[in-house]
């Protein structure tokens, strides 16, 4: 069984994922995602009525730390891997909106 994902659906997911895919990639991705999702469909066979979702492998609660300062990174280290910086800030192309 294979899930019917259109090329457009996949393109939308690519935008949401912020992945620029070329035409070949988009085609392959459409086919492969369809196959994988088709396989995953078998989960629908499982009766999960009343079963709590399990988001963590070990279900701990109440893990806190005290409000105490720990060492910070010097600015130089913070910016050391930045693709573009002026030595003070991370630089990105001009953005206007506040979204």
């Amino acid at each position: 069984m294979s899930v019917q994902l259109s090329r457009d659906d996949v393109a939308k997911v690519a935008l949401l994922s912020r992945l620029k895919l070329d035409d070949g990639e988009l085609d392959r991705m459409t086919e492969q995602l369809g196959a994988i999702l088709g396989y995953v469909e078998r989960l629908s066979e499982v009766d999960t009525e009343g079963i709590e979702p399990m988001a963590h492998a070990v279900e701990r609660t109440n893990v806190f730390r005290a409000d105490v300062e720990t060492p910070m990174l010097p600015r130089e280290a913070a910016l050391s891997n930045a693709p573009k910086t002026d030595g003070q800030y991370f630089l990105v192309p001009q953005i206007f909106d506040a979204g």
Binding site: V40, L43, V46, T48, I51
Partner: peptide, 9 residues
């Protein structure tokens, strides 16, 4: 969410 439930099983 379905996968999380099966995970518990």
């Amino acid at each position: 969410n379905k996968a999380l439930k099966v995970r518990r099983l």
